[in-house]
Design a protein around this nucleic acid. Structure first.
Lengths: 204, 204
DNA sequence: TTTTTTACCGACCAAGTGGTCGGTTCTAAT
DNA sequence: ATTAGAACCGACCACTTGGTCGGTAAAAAA
């Protein structure tokens, strides 16, 4: 168990570098040799730790991508008070992070979804699962918002969740181009407008 | 000029099949041989008509993708009356088409934007140009809507355009998974809600 | 100290990759 | 009928790909 640490450390190093390059260049456009060169490791090391390129990528999804999405988009909204405030702030923060990141190549999750769609159903399952968790969390925070008097009772939580996820994926795709600041500003303004619509009305 | 027709016909055949496969499998994951096999043509034919794989793809963008986006998303909204109605119907129609298409692999434009982002700046330019035309058209129809009394004067047309494009790209990305009908329904409902917010208010 | 196991090396492989090039066939003008 | 050029063929090239495998250095177990 103790020297298992070395194994874990190497595997983790590989996964981190792998994600970096897959994210930057795409899965199909990144070779194992390419990753290994960055790590000064050999083919032997790679296939000692992982069964295949696909297996390797799946381990990256489960260990790194899940966690990334969770900490950036899910954890910040869990069980908080006013859903609209919480979601706005969470989105704004995520977009700002992307904006200030020199090495932003888009939303990691939707990038890979585009790349693997119908080309690798197994990997797609893992990616879709992450989206699902996000969606479920959004829905539940909206529902809770109804009980707490923040969200209008007539609001379709599931519809709003879909709409939020869509717009987020879209704006992240657009932001890859530059002009991030303007895009973020415009997007956030419209998002808050949209939220006004869903706020619980005062009893007239 | 006369027998130029043959040249054009073959090139067009190649482009159509090329787009089909690039769209289905991704650019980097589709080989020229693969395309040629579908056409029963040889390498010689390919490099007689096109300088390189990249040159080939750019010609596809300019000849087919531009036209696709234009006829599906731009032409239907040009110079019509109530912008919200026109845009709603246009989006609904586009989503329905995607939904009923057995071979839907997402929004052609955003798929390639994800794939080429930062990996091929030249191709990115062409793709971004198409997006820009779409955006400009949305903005101008919204502005016209203000003069015509459909759109509230305080609405930020540019912001709305960005928000619309974002949400469309996003919902198309989500729809690749199946559940298209539900997704489309939820999305359209929220979109119409959002539009209500932007409608010109009656003078109180 | 010897033995076993872990972690890693790197030459090698078959199957592709984008791209070249000398040649052939078909067509249309002469 | 001859000929020039357009359209196409397919063997070939250098290179890269994911993956295999016999080996080895070092650490842990005996």
């Amino acid at each position: 168990m103790e020297k298992n640490l070395k194994r874990m450390a190497t595997m983790h190093r590989m996964q981190v570098t792998g994600l970096e390059l897959f994210y930057k260049q795409g899965y199909y456009n990144t070779s194992i040799d390419d990753i290994l060169k960055h790590l000064s490791l050999s083919k032997g090391a790679f296939y000692y730790h992982f069964q295949s390129k696909e297996d390797f990528f799946i381990s990256i999804v489960q260990n790194l991508i899940v966690q990334k999405v969770y900490s950036m988009l899910i954890e910040p909204i869990e069980g908080k008070e006013d859903p609209f405030n919480v979601i706005s702030n969470c989105f704004e923060n995520a977009l700002e992070t992307a904006e200030h990141n020199e090495m932003d190549y888009g939303f990691v999750l939707s990038n890979f979804i585009s790349e693997f769609n119908r080309r690798n159903p197994e990997i797609m399952r893992y990616l879709k699962d992450i989206l699902k968790v996000w969606e479920v969390n959004l829905i539940s925070i909206l529902q809770k918002g109804k009980s707490d008097g923040y969200v209008d009772r007539h609001v379709d939580s599931e519809g709003v969740a879909v709409y939020l996820i869509s717009s987020y994926i879209g704006i992240r795709t657009l932001m890859v181009d530059g002009n991030c600041k303007t895009l973020r500003y415009k997007y956030m303004q419209q998002l808050r407008q949209y939220f006004k619509l869903l706020k619980q009305k005062e009893i007239a």
